[in-house]
Design a protein around this nucleic acid. Structure first.
Lengths: 360, 360
DNA sequence: GTTGGCACTCTCGTCTTTCGAGTGCTAATA
DNA sequence: TATTAGCACTCGAAAGACGAGAGTGCCAAC
């Protein structure tokens, strides 16, 4: 059944009001706020119907109405859109965010921190990388017992490791190894680094000291690390400012889930198109701990096989429209900044595009 | 005034019991638990004196007694020690911790996470570095528009950055710059990198494209980053399992302070001797937000000018003896593992001592 | 100095009452 | 037929009443 225009307006008003006040909203309040010229009695009739349709519910008789997950869903899918256009005032927020993005490095923790600050909800950022390979392999000889491994990956991040040996190593051996790794270990994924490959490299380098396997172990570690999704939560404490989490046990459960690396999306629902916004309302979540919370997720594109997600968690009574708008602006900003890293947009000096490990 | 032996025993019993139950403890409970053969009436007299001496207080008449900060202080300074020896049962915990330490990388966030897990309180880890210098400077030429900066610092960590230029750079220029930076920029601190030094390097390298300043900016950034104390909080949510933080507002305030990078120690009280344990009880804290919480801090030595601190935050009713014991074991383990990085203790292969950036 | 006894105090949980917001229904109205 | 005003009704939240119980302080006896 399709809702009448008036029912839609009323439903939207209930959601808006409830999001604002966190209190069940009564017919009288709607009669005033939503600008449709009818009395509270009419509204009451409509509300009763919305309840029986499943969009609203009342905590108990003689209380106002509260949206059901289905009501929120309707709001997010159809009603909110109309407001979204009026969100162009957030342009100035956009500007503020861009300013922040400039100071921001591309590590996942600062992304999540920023998202949490902007939305005032706990935020979780994560990246999913696929099929990262080594683009370049360098070994810097420091002294006879020490060298530095430097690896540049296909996503243009650079990893390094300092290796110290209890034995002395010939500088020429290091050079041979460097050349061999650069030819043999580039362009392959971690599961292609087989004992066979390592052995043949060892022989080719004439390495009698087992250094090859140390370096290979590093290569495997870096590749598998880079292929593993990482996540970072921040702003858990903001949960506590929400009235629905005044119960410390409830808050504790959810926060525990979040900081335990709990995922926001079911594994199969990996992020798809960049720029897409996904909303999961209450029971739509698979994780038991999220069943009475909502999640808004934005996807951004961080270039070469790397997709990022920024998710925000809050009560089902969440300011979906604002959060979605903010997240999509943020995701767009991140895509712009991280994604097309190949076209340096600005002048020289420290406006150069630089990428690399965060400096701790 | 010095406390009688019996008063000390009673005070210790009150603290122990209160730590365990979080409820004001009455005379009767003590008469039973503490094995001193006297009746509750006697205890009551003693308790009354302890109150007037300032070691205990009662929330209201007809309630049991609760330790004051002064009472906790006495407990921590004198009474707890005697128990500490009996803590040798924690040997097996020690073993467990060592096992964890082996898998642990040396980044501050995993240290804090581990501390929080072990103690079940929120934990904050931070490092204070002083006077870090560059030990070695390498520039890896990738292609005409791209090179990688690799810097090895005096604390044996390695940092890197990928630089992409909108213009082509001659490989020989890169080599010249590498040599110049290696001679001119090593062994100095960030404030010694002056415009003068940069200019002379630029001229010496015959760099007409301003690349020198980009590299110098990286050097400054790395050095100042490394010199800046970093902190990392984890396990904030564990706060919520403490009865004294059932008030969401109170919990929110403290968690906000912690995740806002609030420091646990007053700036002048920087960590001194490694292995030292510091306890700050309630109002002894300077930060307003910590005034009714307690903090236990252990210092560890991470080698070359790098000191680390692990702090744990909880209610004044904190299990000081256990927390202190656990933290000191943890700190000792960290010092052992991170500190003397110059004597590779074990065999070859992947038991080599390796240090470096965490791989994201 | 210690102990048993006892009256006293104060909190906590339970129960009751009151208050008011909001409803559903009905009858009147456009 | 849709809307509205009116009104009795419901139910939860806040406020008070009250008994139970834990613990104290004090006193007199040991």
């Amino acid at each position: 059944m399709v809702l009448s225009e008036r029912k839609k307006k009323i439903l939207a008003a209930v959601v808006d009001e409830y999001v604002r006040t966190a209190e069940p909203v009564g017919s009288k309040a709607i009669a005033q706020s939503a600008g449709l010229g009818c009395s509270s009695a009419t509204i009451r009739n409509e509300l009763a119907e919305l309840v029986s349709l499943g969009y609203l519910e009342q905590p108990h008789t003689s209380a106002g109405r509260v949206p059901t997950p289905m009501g929120y869903r309707m709001y997010v899918n159809e009603l909110m859109q109309k407001q979204k256009l009026s969100l162009e005032e957030t342009e100035e927020l956009n500007r503020r965010m861009n300013q922040r993005l400039r100071e921001l490095d591309d590590t996942i923790d600062s992304v999540s921190r920023l998202a949490s600050q902007l939305t005032d909800y706990p935020a979780l950022a994560l990246t999913t990388r696929t099929a990262v390979t080594i683009k370049r392999f360098d070994i810097i000889y420091v002294d006879a017992n020490t060298f530095i491994l430097v690896v540049m990956l296909s996503d243009n991040t650079v990893k390094n490791k300092l290796v110290r040996l209890p034995v002395s190593v010939d500088q020429r051996l290091v050079q041979r190894l460097s050349a061999l790794f650069n030819s043999g270990f580039t362009g392959i994924t971690d599961d292609q680094i087989t004992p066979l490959l390592i052995n043949s490299t060892e022989r080719a380098a004439d390495d009698t000291m087992g250094i090859t396997s140390v370096i290979a172990a590093f290569a495997i570690e870096v590749l598998s690390d880079a292929g593993t999704p990482t996540s970072f939560v921040s702003g858990e404490n903001r949960l506590l400012s929400q009235p629905e989490f005044r119960d410390p046990d409830k808050a504790h459960r959810l926060m525990g889930y979040l900081s335990g690396g709990g995922y926001l999306l079911p594994p199969d629902q990996t992020p798809t198109g960049a720029g897409e916004i996904k909303v999961l309302i209450g029971p739509e979540n698979v994780a038991e701990e999220l069943k009475d919370s909502s999640v808004v997720i934005a996807t951004y594109d961080a270039g070469d096989n790397t997709k990022g997600m920024i998710g925000v968690v809050g009560p089902t009574r969440m300011d979906y429209s604002t959060v979605a708008a903010k997240l999509s602006i943020l995701a767009a900003g991140l895509s712009r900044r991280l994604g097309s890293g190949d076209a340096p947009p600005e002048g020289l000096h420290n406006k150069l595009i630089v990428k690399g490990d965060k400096h701790e």
